[in-house]
Simulated assay, not measured.
Amino acid sequence: MAESGTPELSVVVPALNEAAGIAAALAPLQEWRERGAEVLVVDGGSDDGTLEAAAPWADRVLEGPQGRARQMNAGAAEATGRVLLFLHADTRPPEDGDRLLLAGLARNGRSWGRFDVRLSGAGRHPLLRVVGSLMNARSRLTGIATGDQGLFVERDAFEAEGGFPEQPLMEDIALSAALKACCGRPLCLRAPIRTSSRRWEDNGVLRTILLMWGLRLRYWLGADPAVLAARYKQG
């Protein structure tokens, strides 16, 4: 907790129909709250009781416009921390991730960063371990982070860049590129954040790799994010 009484860190979790798993997602953040972090859940119109399930585990549960970028921006607008961490509802951060990111930003003089990612099914599917390693290596090479890696950023830098562009896909890539241009390369923490590999396993690992590579290439070539989002939903 900062000397002013405001939190150093605010964690923003966008959610949509996550009632079955939201408590498990927020449980690891309870020690962070004890250390002064603020946790906000931004619901995008759930009809399964997500709001009620999340309430005991968060400082605030907000109702926002549907769309992950819109929800994260709405949470950031209500957050009071100096640093913002955007955490997907199907990710689990390192136990001491709050300390690591705050100390890392201060030590390295960076304004933003991300964790390494580990896919949850890596123990069952060795190829998923390779996928995670490639994601982390690519991020270090390009200086671009994805939402699955737990993107964190100082509030001043986030607001200066206008937050997440309110597009239906690749909002994390777009913000990363803007932050890299204005603030330099990200702090890349090697402590792993674990994210669900359900989509990879359900749709096939190789098929999903090719899909994601193709979507990203088309995005960099100027494709409409709405068109890419529709293709992503098809799997």
Rank of each mutant, 00 (worst) to 15 (best):
E159G: 10
A24F: 04
S196E: 13
A15I: 02
V153F: 13
L29P: 00
L100F: 10
E201N: 08
F115W: 05
N73K: 05
Q167W: 00
S120F: 03
G75V: 02
Q234M: 09
R185P: 00
G44C: 10
R155K: 13
I173T: 13
R198Q: 14
W220K: 13
V130S: 10
K180R: 15
P225D: 00
V13L: 04
P126A: 02
L151R: 12
E38I: 02
R129C: 07
D90C: 03
T195I: 05
W112Y: 11
T195R: 07
P126D: 04
E34M: 10
L16V: 06
M170D: 01
P14M: 11
W112L: 11
A230I: 01
R231T: 07
R190G: 13
L51R: 14
L228K: 00
V13N: 02
C182A: 15
S133E: 15
E166I: 04
P93R: 09
A137T: 08
A122R: 07
A79M: 03
A178I: 00
V130T: 13
E78F: 00
P186R: 04
A74V: 03
R92S: 10
H88I: 01
G97R: 07
P165I: 05
R68A: 07
D172I: 01
I144M: 04
F86G: 01
D172S: 09
P168W: 01
P14V: 08
A37G: 11
L217R: 15
L134C: 07
M72H: 00
L40T: 11
F164L: 04
L217Q: 14
L85I: 08
L187K: 01
R107A: 10
A76E: 01
R114Q: 05
D90N: 06
Q71M: 14
D148L: 02
V205A: 10
E31N: 09
D172R: 05
P168G: 01
R99I: 02
R138Y: 03
E34N: 12
M135A: 09
P94I: 05
S133G: 15
M72I: 02
E38W: 10
T91M: 04
G162N: 12
G235Q: 12
R194T: 14
D48A: 12
V117D: 01
L119S: 04
G5W: 12
A77V: 04
R33S: 12
A191V: 01
M135Q: 11
A226N: 03
G150W: 05
V131Q: 01
T142K: 07
L87E: 09
I144Y: 03
G163P: 02
F158W: 13
I144L: 05
T80V: 04
T208E: 15
A230Y: 01
D156M: 02
E166R: 06
P28W: 14
P93M: 08
A23W: 06
R82L: 12
L134A: 09
E34G: 13
S10H: 07
L128K: 02
A191D: 12
G67E: 03
Y219W: 13
